[in-house]
């Protein structure tokens, strides 16, 4: 039975491809109101039709079948593109649903009964849902990318001196943000050839175990790479957390503030800072 349904559907898809494509394009264009060029739509739909025919002939009506791999890939490409360009989910899914009218027409003309129409309808519905899903996924990816970019922007790694870089952290640290910042810090060590890094957490009100662990791991990783990492500006509350959690800060250099940390790093690289005895006006 299901095999039969697939055969009917395949028949419809292959019967008059050009007519099907034209009708589909016309219906879809109504909903898009010129937001996608017709050449672009035509290319996308033509590819989809070819892939759909392949899917139906290999996998029948089962969209999860491997024969539908290309269809899924094309739909997620379409969705990603639409999500980036700011199309709504319904504007995206309607392009697929528009295939229904064209298929019904063909079915009616070919003298197929309500059964065939129902099958086609259910099949297009499933395709539409698939599009919806991949749109949502694409949309989430876009948002995740944007928030990652934002995170990068909000935590600059700055060069304080030749061979000394610092990252001043401000605000609440969650595990994800800490990880991104730490990776960036380590990469900066490589890019600038700096042997000293300072993580300044003066602007961080509190840390949880996980974040404290990430900080620690970063210090150890920096050491493995051949650089030294100092943590400065640990607030009393954070110090208490660290002690209460029993986290070993061991031999990791900590300094009260960024200035002391810089001084420590400079000494480490052989630079001595002294106050001038005379002159200088003060």
């Amino acid at each position: 039975m299901a095999e039969n349904d697939g055969q009917h559907l395949l028949g419809l898809l292959l019967q008059d491809e050009q007519a099907l494509l034209e009708r589909w394009l016309r219906d879809a264009a109504v909903h898009l109101q010129g937001r996608a060029s017709s050449a672009e739509l035509e290319r996308a739909f033509r590819d989809l039709l070819t892939a759909l025919a392949k899917g139906v002939s290999g996998g029948g009506l089962d969209l999860d079948h491997e024969a539908y791999g290309e269809v899924r890939a094309l739909l997620s490409e379409l969705s990603r593109d639409r999500a980036r360009r700011g199309f709504t989910p319904s504007e995206t899914a309607v392009s697929v649903f528009s295939l229904k009218g064209a298929l019904f027409d063909l079915a009616a003309r070919a003298g197929q009964g309500t059964d065939a129409i129902l099958v086609a309808s259910r099949w297009v519905d499933a395709l539409g849902l698939l599009t919806f899903d991949s749109y949502v996924r694409a949309r989430e990816e876009v948002i995740a990318e944007q928030s990652e970019q934002l995170m990068e922007l909000s935590t600059p790694v700055v060069k304080l001196w030749e061979g000394v870089v610092a990252v001043p952290l401000i605000g609440t640290l969650d595990s994800a943000r800490t990880q991104i910042v730490m990776e960036k810090l380590l990469q900066t060590l490589v890019d600038t050839g700096s042997e000293h890094a300072i993580i300044d957490i003066t602007g961080v009100p509190a840390v949880d175990t996980e974040v404290a662990q990430h900080l620690l791991k970063t210090v150890v990783a920096a050491r493995l790479m051949g650089a030294e990492c100092t943590i400065s500006g640990i607030r009393p509350q954070i110090a208490q957390t660290i002690v209460a959690l029993g986290i070993e800060f061991g031999d990791i250099p900590t300094k009260a503030n960024l200035a002391d940390a810089l001084l420590h790093a400079l000494r480490g690289s052989g630079v001595e800072v002294v106050r001038r005895r005379s002159g200088g006006g003060r």
């Binding site: 490589v190 042997e195 050491r223 790479m225 051949g226 650089a227």
Partner: peptide, 30 residues
């Protein structure tokens, strides 16, 4: 010399401390 950041992060997670090994950022510093 020249350990990449991703490699260093992974080694820390793996629990390998490279005891007795000295490291440097690049060839010149090594």
């Amino acid at each position: 010399v020249g350990m990449r950041p991703a490699v260093a992060i992974t080694l820390v997670e793996l629990g390998l401390s490279l005891d007795g090994v000295r490291t440097a950022l690049d060839l010149e510093k090594g």
